[in-house]
Design a protein around this nucleic acid. Structure first.
Lengths: 271, 271
DNA sequence: GGATCATTTCTCACTCAGTGGAAACTGTTT
DNA sequence: AAACAGTTTCCACTGAGTGAGAAATGATCC
C-alpha cells in the first residue's frame, strides 16, 4: 500500500532540481500534474516539494492555480555570472546605441551558444534568441565565431556530431562548415543569413580573454538590411576591444563561474 | 557517535534552498566551510549537497576551489517574470535612448523595491541599485511612487514600521513621508535627492495595470544634473503610457508570477 | 441540482536516503 | 616536519521522505 517503494538512487535534491528544470523550457504556468509528468516525480511528492519551494519563493502560484518560477529565484540567480554581464553591459548598450540594431553577447555552454545579454529597441526584428536561451553553435554568427576560435579539439568534437538544420538555410555540411570557420578566422568575423530564423541575419566578432576566445558579440538585423550589415563591422571590433580591455584584469573563472570549461562540450553524462 | 541526531523540522529541501540563498547576498565565490557556516547546514551535509548541486549546474566550482552560482541556474531563472521584462524592456531601452540617463523599472517585493530591469551606458553615475537587487521603498523614487499609489493598508503598514536612513538625506519621518506621498499623487511623479547614495538623484513615475499600481519606471542622474531632471518628465510619462498599453491585455498574475500580492508586505513569517 | 471528470490535497505505515561527528586526506604556511 | 585550514570519506543510526490510495475541491455539462 503505502511506504517506501522508492527507486534507489533518487535523492530528494534530484527531485527538487528536476522540478525546477521543468521550467527551463516551459513558458507558461504549469499545474501540479504537468510538473509531475514532466519531471518524473510522483504526484504526491511533487505536491509536497512544490509547496515547499513556493514557501521559499523559488516558485509561485498564481491566482488561477498555475505554478511558475518565483521572483526570489530570479533575484538570487542574478548573481550568477554577474561580473561578465555587469562589465560588458554598458558596451553592449553602446553597440546598440551606435548601430541601432539588436546587440547581443553570448558564451559557449557545452555545444550551444548561451545568450548572456541582449539589447534591443522597439524595432521589430524576428527574434530567435533570448537572454538565458541557447542556440546551436553552428547556426548562429556568435556561435560560429566561438567555434572558429576555440581549441581544435572543441571544433573537431563539434563537427563530428550530427548537425541539425533549423531553417532551410542552416549550414550543416561538416566539410563546408570547417572551411567557413577558417574564413571566419581569416576575416575576423562571422555572418549568417537566415540560418536560425527567416527574416533575420547576423554578424559577430570574437572577444578574447587571456589569449583565448572568451565570448562573442554580434548584431541581428532584418534580412532586408543585410547588405548594410558589414558597415557595422568597425564598430563591432571597436566595442570588442573595449570589452577585452575591461575584462583583462578579471580572472576568467570569476567572470562566468567557469562555465566554458572544456568538459562541458558534451552535456554532462549521468555518473 | 554518528547517526541521526538531526534537528526535527529541517527538510532536505530547506537545506538545499538555504545553501542557494547564501549566494543571494555574497558577491564572491565561497568555500564549503563558509557556505556551511552561512547556511547553518553542517559541513559534511553541505559537502554532499553542494556537490550534487554542482553536478546539476546549479552551482559551479572554479579552478581555485571556490563555489559560485552556476549559469544553469541563471538560465532557468531567466524564465521567472519574463513576460513583464520582455514586454517592458524595449520601452525602458527607449527611455534610455531618449534621455541618455540610467533608466530602471521596479516592482514592489514585500516592503522593498525590486529592480527588474536597468539600462545604462558607460557614463559614470554612482549606482546603488542593480538588477535583481532590492532597496527600501521609502528611500527611492521608484519606491515612493509605488508606495504613493498602493492601497491605503499597504502604505499604512509600511509607515508604521521603523524607517531606516541610508544616507543623511534619507527621509525617515513618517508624518512628513505621508505628506510627501500625497504630493507624489498630486504631481504624478516622485523625486529624490541623494537619499540612497551620495551623488545620485532620481525621478520616477507610476505604471498602472488594471487601475492599480503595477510597477514604476524612473531615471537616475548625477546630482550635478539634478536641476535638469524634471525636463525628462514628459518622456517618462509617455513611456509609462506605452508600457501600460502594452501590458494591459496581459493578466497581472502572468506578468510577474503574482509576486506583488498583498500578503508579502511583511516578509513571510516562519510557519 | 447533481452527475462527471480533472486536479489538488491529505493520510499513513514503511523504510532507506539522509545524517553528521569523527577521522582521513590534501595542500599550504611556518 | 609540524601545525594549520579546508576538503573529502566513512559509517551506524533513524526519522524524514515516500507514494499509493482516498478524500476533498472545483470546474463543466446536462
Amino acid at each position: 500500500m503505502a511506504g517506501g517503494n522508492r527507486v534507489p538512487g533518487s535523492t530528494v535534491t534530484s527531485k527538487v532540481l528536476a522540478i525546477m528544470e521543468v521550467f527551463e523550457t516551459s513558458r507558461r504556468a504549469l499545474s501540479l500534474t504537468e510538473i509531475s509528468e514532466a519531471s518524473g516525480v510522483p504526484l504526491s511528492t511533487t505536491h509536497r516539494l512544490v509547496n515547499e519551494l513556493i514557501e521559499w519563493g523559488m516558485l509561485s502560484r498564481g491566482s488561477t492555480g498555475g505554478v511558475q518560477l518565483g521572483l526570489r529565484l530570479w533575484a538570487i540567480a542574478q548573481n550568477a555570472g554577474r561580473q561578465l554581464r555587469d562589465t560588458a553591459r554598458p558596451f553592449v548598450q553602446d553597440l546598440f546605441s551606435l548601430t541601432g540594431e539588436t546587440s547581443q553577447l553570448a558564451v559557449r555552454d557545452g555545444n550551444m551558444a548561451l545568450y548572456i545579454d541582449r539589447v534591443y529597441g522597439s524595432k521589430r526584428v524576428p527574434r530567435a534568441s533570448r537572454v538565458g536561451g541557447r542556440l546551436p553553435l553552428h547556426a548562429t554568427a556568435v556561435g560560429k565565431v566561438i567555434l572558429a576560435y576555440s581549441e581544435d579539439w572543441v571544433t573537431d568534437a563539434y563537427l563530428s556530431q550530427p548537425l541539425a538544420p533549423i531553417t532551410g538555410h542552416t549550414h550543416v555540411n561538416p566539410g563546408r562548415l570547417r572551411t567557413e570557420l577558417a574564413q571566419v578566422r581569416a576575416r575576423g568575423y562571422a555572418a549568417t543569413q537566415e540560418e536560425v530564423i527567416l527574416g533575420a541575419c547576423s554578424i559577430a566578432v570574437p572577444v578574447f580573454h587571456t589569449g583565448r576566445i572568451g565570448c562573442s558579440i554580434g548584431l541581428v538585423v532584418a534580412s532586408t538590411n543585410a547588405g548594410a550589415m558589414l558597415r557595422h563591422l568597425p564598430v563591432l571590433q571597436g566595442i570588442s576591444q573595449r570589452i577585452e580591455a575591461s575584462t583583462a584584469h578579471i580572472p576568467l573563472e570569476t567572470l562566468l563561474g567557469s562555465l566554458t570549461s572544456g568538459e562541458l562540450l558534451q552535456p554532462p553524462h549521468s555518473e
